[in-house]
Design a binder for these strands. Sequence first.
RNA 1: CGCGGGGUAGAGCAGUUCGGUAGCUUGCCAGGCUCAUAACCUGGAGGUCGUGAGGUUCAAAUCCCACCCCCGCAA
Length: 305
Amino acid sequence: MRVIFMGTPDFAIPVLEALTTKHTVIAVYTQPPRPAGKGYHLTPSPVHQKAASFGIPVYTPISLKNEEEQKKFAALKADVAVVCAYGLILPATVLNTPLKGCINIHASLLPRWRGAAPIQRAIEAGDSESGITIMQMDVGLDTGDMLLKKSCPITAETTGESLHDTLSTMGAELILKALDENMQPQPQPTKGVTYAEKIQKDESLIDWALPADQLAHKIMAFYSYPATYTVYHGERIKILKAHATQLTTDQAVGTILDSNLHIACKNGTVLQIDFLQRAGKKALSTADFMQSDFLKIGDLFCATN
RNA sequence: CGCGGGGUAGAGCAGUUCGGUAGCUUGCCAGGCUCAUAACCUGGAGGUCGUGAGGUUCAAAUCCCACCCCCGCAA
């Protein structure tokens, strides 16, 4: 089939690669290059770079809501458009242009976690499973009829990064299957709808006045990007991995209880930090980190900047 | 030229301001002791101090120059 691929971040790369093995990818749409990295250089998106290495024509419109872009899109005469973490709204005209419409790869078990950050929100909420849903796009936000669905477990060791990688691979497999076989579209259930809000910058700051298990979920969800952090004597410290413990304490929330980095949380619950990083330093395990005497037992982590 | 921190023993760091024998903690090896809740004591191995047969100097981890690499902010 003649396929248009629309995607932007790393997550979409395996999908693009998979498509090129079985179909003719006639064009790739992705977000325009943005300033990024040290030096603020204009950097093409990961999908942009990958497409360029394949020699596939790349389009980077700022919007698809104007007629001119829509004409260009139609002129490609695609059989189908595959959309994966593209980051632009597709108007109805665009959705209806390809013969088989636009098919989306979404990183959740719809209708749970519609929206921008389904991977992190699922872990943060303490869900026991996540997955991929392939759907026929309509004008709503992730509301289209479902073609394929596959789940995977979330454990205490699952991080945003590991789940991202798992689902990315899974998405690549499922999209090929969905294109090959003639799947019967099924409407999404009307019950169980939740929305995965985009992650805001201020969410990364840890509030120690929350229960340990809740914090553990959030810390693991935010690993490795954007990562949670706390403040110690005015310096930012990334808390990269942690787990809730069965211990209890009567110390104030945010107190560093011992050299194993057990930290007091709400209602005397105790979180143990496993992996952390000072600004400008390497990420270290708790054992390595505590070889310096930077953190003093009994001191408090702050919940404000 | 967006702002900033860093590269010294397997790991984590001090030493650099003001040049003068390579240090600390931990880990590892050997021995001792018999302990408590990162056990303790003694001894030992382990380092081209990121790179450049660079520059300055009687002398460079330290000052100067160039380059490489890692990371925080920001996106």
